[in-house]
Simulated assay, not measured.
Amino acid sequence: MRNVILVHGFWHGSWCWSPITARLAARGIPSVAVDLDGHGLGARAPRSRWSVPFDPQTYATEPSPVAGITASSAAATLIEQVRTIGGGRPCVVVAHSMSGPVVTLAAEREPGLFAHIQYVSAFAPVSGHATADYIGLPENAGDLVAPLLAADPAVVGALRIRTDDHAALRECFYGDVEPARAEAAIALLSVDGPMGIPGEAFPVTRARFGAVPHSYVMCTRDNAVRPELQRRLIRELDAVSAAPTKVFELDSSHSPFLSRPDELTDAIETVVLP
């Protein structure tokens, strides 16, 4: 049985996978959720987040304490996590959202540790462009992440979000999540996603990354990574991979681990037990 490693996206933590780990366990599938560098127990918030009274100008300019994290450094951490959890044997790795570039780079560097990558509404930069280049593409028009930003990423070194506008956060990330659960998730969000992750471009080769089997879970009601951009990412994956991308479609917001946990577990089980 392959171990499943679940990697969250920006501003979240390993906590968001708890509905999935429980369901995988019920099906006899071992899984571990890990924290992306700069998140979860590794999150560090700017001091101005907690200032009383709150000063939005300082919050918009204070350098991020996680600004030094890059896709390369986060991939190095993930490689060690995969190696440890799998005991050196290949694992199935599930990547949500902005963990996509980290997982992609890790698989390019150590393809033998990856039995399968399943992207869940995730960025998968395999064309040589930085992930940040995809965010402003026409295919991503209408995304609701940009209105959440409280600072210029070039100034603070992070994608820093406001956490006071719960309605905007729900619409962006949790549009079909039960309201009480969405509120609980919002309370757990960190505020800084290291800009060095989407800002780093890296090469991806057919011989290394392209040899790793992969699939993609499309979220067709996603307001953070728009469906047309997801389709473009799938096409680009196909261009560098030995086999076509297996695609699952969920009628879901950006957070199917909270809104569609049974269906997402089905998709994961399909690639663990083909």
Rank of each mutant, 00 (worst) to 15 (best):
M1F: 14
I5Y: 03
V7C: 07
H8E: 07
G9E: 01
H12E: 10
G13N: 05
C16K: 01
S18M: 13
S18E: 12
P19H: 10
V32R: 10
A33T: 05
D37I: 10
G38V: 08
G40S: 14
P46F: 05
R49I: 15
W50Y: 15
P53H: 14
F54Y: 15
Q57C: 12
T58N: 14
S64P: 02
S73Q: 04
A74W: 00
T77M: 12
T77V: 08
V82T: 03
R83G: 03
R83Q: 06
I85W: 03
G87S: 05
G88T: 09
G88I: 10
P90K: 02
G100T: 04
G100N: 04
P101L: 05
V103W: 03
R109Y: 02
R109K: 08
A115R: 05
I117Q: 00
Y119R: 01
Y119S: 03
S121T: 12
A122H: 01
A122V: 02
A122E: 02
A124L: 05
A130D: 05
A130V: 05
D133Y: 07
L137M: 15
E139Q: 15
A141H: 13
A146E: 15
A146D: 14
L148Q: 09
A150C: 15
D152M: 10
D152N: 14
P153L: 09
V155G: 01
L159G: 06
R160K: 13
R160W: 09
C172P: 06
D176V: 12
E178D: 13
E178Q: 14
A182G: 07
E183A: 15
A187Y: 13
L189I: 09
S190L: 06
V191Q: 07
D192H: 08
G193D: 10
P194E: 08
P194L: 04
P194G: 08
M195V: 13
M195C: 08
I197M: 05
F202S: 01
T205K: 07
T205F: 08
T205A: 06
R206S: 13
R208H: 06
R208V: 02
F209P: 00
A211E: 00
S215I: 09
Y216S: 08
V217P: 00
V217H: 00
A224T: 07
A224C: 11
V225N: 01
V225A: 07
R226W: 13
Q230L: 10
Q230M: 12
L233Q: 11
L233H: 08
R235Y: 12
R235K: 14
L237I: 13
S252K: 04
S255Q: 03
S255A: 15
L258G: 01
S259V: 06
S259H: 06
P261A: 09
P261T: 07
D262S: 09
L264G: 00
T270N: 12
T270W: 09
P274T: 13
